[in-house]
């Protein structure tokens, strides 16, 4: 299928990345032949999408008014969602945005600059973790051993708990955060807790966890295991099964992959958890 984007082999990688991101902004996809040229941080670059959106408005300004019935439908839906998702009076999102701004502005070198997105995401995660009610962590399923092991790991002082943030993927039906990662670097042991993600049919696709290790080439994240989200399960707790030792986990990400998982991700992420 030539519809996506064959990139000439002799293109410099910088151009290949730009072409790939331009295709995504215009067509919604990167061709399979170019997606592998994108690192995770680049995949999440939105500057081309912003450029396409601004050009869209400039060329085709709004010209129609929506039906009044649609207004009632949309605002009623959002009102219900907003009401149902208000766990705390603390205005977390504003705090997160403010913190993220600070984090993004901080890098001063090329090496820190390339981690700008991770820094921003980490700031959001920290804010979420600070806001997260403790009872939420304690509400593990009573019968699942992963939940028990996870709670035991949390009790270890050297264990980090970082929030998972939803992406805009339709499979992520929650808002803001969608679970957490419990990770003990010393033990190399951890658990992913995921909520608000659509159940999967394992014959169609599976979820796969990835770990970006800052001591390794970020183009090659570590496979953290393939897992399913059953239909009758509001929350799933998955042991992290890193295929190689993790030196310094900088980011966890959950992607949607073909059944059985993959060694090279298509980078369709439903959740990300940057480690602060």
């Amino acid at each position: 299928m030539s519809g996506s984007s064959p990139i000439p082999n002799d293109l410099p990688s910088e151009d290949a990345r730009a072409w790939s991101l331009a295709d995504r902004a215009l067509l919604g996809t990167c061709g399979p032949d170019v997606s592998t040229s994108l690192r995770i941080v680049e995949y999440l670059d939105e500057s081309f999408d912003y450029a396409a959106a601004a050009t869209d408005i400039a060329l085709f300004p709004p010209a129609e008014r929506p039906p009044e019935a649609l207004r009632r439908r949309v605002t009623a839906t959002l009102g219900r969602l907003s009401e149902a998702s208000r766990p705390s009076p603390i205005p977390m999102p504003q705090t997160a945005a403010t913190t993220a701004n600070t984090a993004i502005g901080a890098p001063t070198t090329a090496s820190t600059g390339r981690w700008g997105w991770i820094a921003a995401a980490a700031a959001i995660a920290i804010a979420v973790a600070a806001w997260w009610p403790v009872t939420e962590i304690d509400r593990a399923t009573p019968d699942g051993s992963p939940a028990l092991f996870r709670n035991a790991l949390i009790a270890d002082r050297s264990t980090a708990v970082v929030a998972c943030a939803c992406t805009e993927d339709p499979l992520c039906i929650g808002s803001g955060e969608c679970g957490d990662i419990v990770w003990n670097a010393e033990r190399g042991e951890g658990y992913l807790r995921l909520v608000g993600v659509e159940p999967n049919d394992p014959s169609e696709f599976q979820y796969q966890l990835w770990i970006v290790d800052s001591t390794r080439d970020e183009r090659y994240p570590i496979d953290g295991g393939v897992f399913d989200v059953p239909g009758d399960c509001g929350e799933v707790i998955v042991p992290i099964r890193a295929t190689v030792p993790v030196g310094d986990a900088a980011l966890f990400a959950v992607s949607v992959e073909k059944p059985g998982g993959t060694v090279v991700s298509d980078r369709r992420f439903v959740a990300v958890a940057p480690v602060g």
Binding site: V41, G105, P107, T108, G116
Partner: peptide, 11 residues
Amino acid sequence: MDEAGNRPGED
């Protein structure tokens, strides 16, 4: 921002 998360003029 660019693909590395940098704002214009930053790296």
